[in-house]
Design a binder for these strands. Sequence first.
DNA 1: GCCAACGTTGGC
DNA 2: GCCAACGTTGGC
Length: 149
Amino acid sequence: MAFWLMKSEPVTYGIHHLKAEGETLWDGVRNYQARNFLQTMAVGDQAFFYHSNCKPPGIVGLMTITAEQVVDPTQFDPASPYFDPKATLEKPRWFTVKASFTREFAQMITLSTLKAQFSPEELGVLKKGNRLSVLPVSPAIANRILELA
DNA sequence: GCCAACGTTGGC
DNA sequence: GCCAACGTTGGC
């Protein structure tokens, strides 16, 4: 079982949306490195839900991966902002996962708290200039994050 | 709103 | 294959 960190802007899709829905298809990732991480996810993996582009940013809860290697349907939808004209049904370009709500932390673990606890090497989201929306988290660091929650 | 970081595109 | 231009992310 692996741990991950997945970012979303709370205005667009926050943890309260996931809590209400129970499960979501994590669509719209259009970065190859992030996609490659998505493709290595397995059912049962745990992912920290990170709120980005808000005040303050931080980890707000935990999700569980419930489906792996899911073809992102938005790549075929011309009306979607995530439409990719180069993707075909025979050869899809974008894959993702389904994730279910597991828990919301009593209080957000803010970015500043994370920075105080971990080095950028320990936790990739702290690296300067990092823009990946899907990142791996080592089990040791994941356990330490869970102790903060 | 600013701007650093960085991925992508496209001309050559 | 190089690299300038451009667009996006995301913290501050």
